[in-house]
Design a protein around this nucleic acid. Structure first.
Lengths: 175, 175
DNA sequence: ATCTTTGCAAATACTTTGCAGGCTA
DNA sequence: TAGCCTGCAAAGTATTTGCAAAGAT
């Protein structure tokens, strides 16, 4: 999102808007938070201010967000970037967050609500992500299970060039 | 593969062995290479010594391999690590290599033979990878296409704990 | 009281970039 | 020859680690 990327992600992102266009009804935001908090409480991890802040953020915005983006969206006094990294890692470990990979060497996370397992299409040009409301990995997970694996998870991302960027590109050629 | 990883990866890898256990018949190695070379020749890219060396490597070993691993396996005089990075990127761009993502912020690549599109299960503990001879992303790619995306690709990796590592872990607990 | 978590600073690891010279088409 | 490629050195950027102080149960 910063190296060879033509369109920087963070800068181009409206923080008040879900990056992947996923609809997040206002009324369920707190429900999601309560549920997440319950999971955290029941885990061996401690319920700290930073973790609560991070869970609140993820309950309200769909993501996926990188550590840096999370840190930027939290109140200035919330916590250190290092703590964000550590929190994301530990919250992923207890299954509260799910990691996404947009191929730019940056870990991104979103709330791992059981209700709604999905993936994204990421535009290779503008790096915007949209939700794909479906997951097709069941068969692969079963295959892995039959090979003796346990605690199975997966990541899956689809990449392409979105209509808007394709049009922009052909505009440029017309010059 | 080096950061929070309990088992180092590169060091633990036998370079003479395909990391994901994929069978690579001796006789087709050169066939794969010839085919790749043809693609490279027909591309706008130039046929250079480094690129040939890298394609030879990928034709003989299944991978996936990181830039660093590739560099380590090439003859000492073959080329600079920077060149490996650049070659992997350009060979991916013309579709000769395919990127895999094992979740450790390291790009890995394998030969993108049309014959055999597949994915991997990666053990979260020992980081060994095995092939899953199947791909379930067609439906998602179609969905992305219907949303206006073009030049669609995807990545997909399954993670778990392999039987061996699970046993080792329970051995430790028994202490 | 104990064990976890945090902040800060510093270190790592992977990847990219600039530039001059070498090589391919 | 013209333009792509490469090597080397140096920079970035994301992420991790060490350690002492602060916090959670």
């Amino acid at each position: 999102m910063k190296r060879a990327a033509p369109a920087p992600g963070k800068a181009s992102r409206d923080p008040g808007h879900d990056p992947c266009g996923h609809r997040h009804p206002e009324e369920s935001s707190s429900v999601r938070y309560e549920e997440a908090l319950r999971t955290l409480t029941q885990s061996p991890l401690r319920v700290t201010r930073s973790r609560k802040a991070i869970l609140t953020l993820f309950s309200g915005k769909h993501g996926p967000f990188s550590a840096d983006e999370v840190h930027g969206m939290l109140a200035d006094t919330a916590c250190d970037l290092v703590t964000v990294y550590r929190s994301l890692a530990s919250l992923e470990k207890i299954g509260l967050l799910r990691r996404c990979d947009f191929g730019d060497n940056t870990h991104r996370f979103e709330l791992n609500t059981g209700e709604h397992h999905h993936h994204h299409v990421v535009c290779r040009v503008c790096h915007r992500a949209e939700t794909l409301d479906h997951c097709a990995a069941d068969s692969l997970e079963k295959m892995a299970a039959s090979m003796g694996y346990s605690q199975i998870t997966h990541i899956m991302e689809v990449f392409g060039v979105c209509a808007r960027c394709r049009e922009n590109a052909s505009d440029h050629e017309r010059h």
